[in-house]
Structure formats: structure tokens, C-alpha cells
Amino acid sequence: MSKKLLEIQNLRAGTEDKEILRGISLAIQPGEVHAIMGQNGSGKSTLAYVLAGKPGYEVFGGSVWMNGKDLLSMEPEERAGEGLFLAFQYPVEIPGLNMSTFLRHAVNEVRQYRGLDPLDAKNFLKLVREKVQELGLSSDFLKRAVNAGFSGGEKKKNEILQLLLLEPSLVILDETDSGLDLDALKQVTEHILRLKSPERSFLIITHYPKLLEYLKPDVVHVMDDGQILCSGGWEVVKDLEEHGFENIRQSVLNAP
């Protein structure tokens, strides 16, 4: 039996009294790339937020296990320590908070959670400068305030930079392709591709198939109205592209 990285069982969740996720089940093995496709309002981003533990979302039923631990009972920062990383669709600006201060705190908190010694200032700077260069960002990027005045592309690259530094085992990409032109999309995707490894899994949330063409998911789930309509391989993406959501919905609903 293979060891599951993430197992979602019949998850029902939403905001206050409104149930948005109506019984989601899926399992991700280490190294797998899963994609969730679905239209706006289908509950894709809610799933990402519930997994990351965003305050304001409530769980009504079901369970989520990560590395065999009860994910839903953990604080958001503990989930990050466990290796869950959410690349935000709209990374928030934090005026005045210097990028390098932020990154140093984040890296060392996560290291501490994982039982590693904190990086000293010198080693941290060496590491972070290397990654900044890798992403083709300028060196004064680290002196800027977190996401403040960043272009769309810079914001997404900043998410990737954090991903590189925090070395998560489960990466959730929430509409990482939104707001990027084709060139920027290609660049960002290339960086993500390089992050693929047998120990690292991805859950990619998108409603455009473009990103998936590069990332080649192992499993594709189609989400509709808080439920998974169907799951499958690359053929599901093709199917979606050719026939659209509505057709798939009809064919699933009419299936015997």
C-alpha cells in the first residue's frame, strides 16, 4: 500500500452557515500532480483556503489527513510547518514590511517547526540571493515591502520565491496563471516544473487548461457546485477544452 501525502474524506465546509464544499474526497500520493478545474464559484478556492486553515471558513464534516496527521485540527502556521504551501491567487500587500525580514522569519519559523536550526543572517542571505537570482529578480527586490507595488508577474514570482525557500511537500497553486501574459506564464511554469520531485506533490487550481499543458497533471478533477464531478487523466482536460463544462456536467448527470 502506498503512503498517502494528503487524504481528503467527504469534506463539507463553507463560510458561516453556507455550505460550499459538499462532500469532497480525494487522495494525493507523494510526487503526484493533481489539477482541479472548475468554473468560477464551483468551490475551488474555498477548498484551497479550507486546507490552509483560513480563519472565517468552517468545516461541517469530513476529515483531512496529511502525513497521517489530522490537518483540520492544526493552526495555519502548523500546517505550513507540516509542509503545506498555498500560492495565493491575490497575494496581499504588507506595507513597510521588508521582503528579507519577512522571508527570514518565515524560513526560520518553518525550520524550527521541522526541528532544524535557524539559518544565521549570513547563510540566509546567501540562500535567498541565490533564489532571487534564479528567478531573474533584481537584487533590490529584497529591500522592497512585501508585494507592495509589485506587478502581477512580480507577485507570482514572489510566491514562487517563498515556495523555493520553504521547501513544502504539498504545493497548492490557486489560479497561479491568472493575470499573467503568456510569456510570464511560461516563465512561472518553468520554475514550477523545476520544483517537481518524487517527494513533492501539487494541487493545481485553475480554470484555464493552458497551465496544465505545461505541468502535465497525473490526475485531473472537475469540480462543480462543491463536488467533484469526475476525475481522470489528461483526457479530461481535452474533453473540457473540446466540449466545455456544461457538456461534461450533462453527460455525468445523465450517466446510468
Binding site: 493552526e75 495565493f88 496581499v92 519577512f102 518553518v110
Partner: peptide
Amino acid sequence: QLFYLRQRGLD
């Protein structure tokens, strides 16, 4: 803002 930072491991 707080959730963003907590998602990155800060309490």
C-alpha cells in the same frame, strides 16, 4: 495580511 503570514509559518 495575518493569514498570509501565518500560511508562511509565522504564529
